[in-house]
Simulated assay, not measured.
Amino acid sequence: MSESEETFYTADRWQNWLDRVGEEDLDPENEDSARLLLNLQDDTAIAVAKIVSAYDDDRLSEEEAIDEIADVREIVLAEVEMDSEEKVMLIDGVQTSLVCVFYSAEEYMLSGAVEEGSVAEFVDAAAAAEADDDVDAALGYLVQAGTKIIDGEELPMDAVEDLEYGLVSEWVNGLDSLQSAMADPEVVEEDE
């Protein structure tokens, strides 16, 4: 198996973000704090977008691309240890948002973008599934939406605005980061 020349994401990169979160006096209501968490999430979504692009450009085989996604997921979803329970919860929110991003990228590479339905329809179906306590179905619908976002369909903001806070809204938040990353896969500078 050929070793990819590109490095898409590293444990050090994630740790640098965690260190910044650890050093900051975070207040989720504060714009700078919210931006730091969003940058952390966007940075990971950008890594995923770059892997998908490398796959689409035939620079990575399906197997290599899936392995790269698995590597990033393993780094980002690992349990976080910090002194502050509140910060652990905030990071957990970012991790939760990214779950759908990883699954969407894998599904896209394995099966392509789903042909039926729109992003808005999948978001609505996910919200309905969550209301029925069917979390697995909700995630499945959003993964389908994610494949369409990777393929270029927009996440309609009006479909997002009415979502109740919960797993679906967290996952859709991740898809929003994925959409931005697919449109502009530039690295978020850690010192911004």
Rank of each mutant, 00 (worst) to 15 (best):
C100V: 13
A128E: 15
A120I: 04
S111N: 14
F102P: 08
L110Y: 12
F102Y: 14
E106M: 10
L90Q: 05
M109P: 04
V88F: 06
E106G: 07
V119F: 00
V101I: 13
M109K: 05
Y103Q: 10
Y108K: 14
Q95T: 09
V94W: 00
A126M: 06
T96E: 03
S104C: 08
S111E: 15
S97N: 11
A105F: 06
A128C: 01
A120S: 13
G112D: 11
L110A: 12
V123D: 01
D92R: 05
Y103N: 08
D124P: 05
G112R: 12
S111R: 14
I91C: 10
A127S: 13
E116S: 15
L98I: 03
I91T: 08
D92L: 02
V94D: 00
L98S: 01
F102E: 06
Y103A: 04
V119T: 03
D124S: 13
A127F: 01
G112V: 12
V119A: 00
S111L: 13
M109T: 02
G112N: 09
V114H: 05
K87T: 05
V101M: 07
E115P: 09
V94E: 00
V94A: 09
F122Q: 03
K87M: 02
V114P: 00
G93E: 03
G112M: 10
T96N: 07
V88R: 11
A125L: 14
A128Y: 04
S111D: 12
A125C: 07
A120R: 08
Y108N: 09
A105V: 08
E107V: 02
G112Y: 11
Y103S: 07
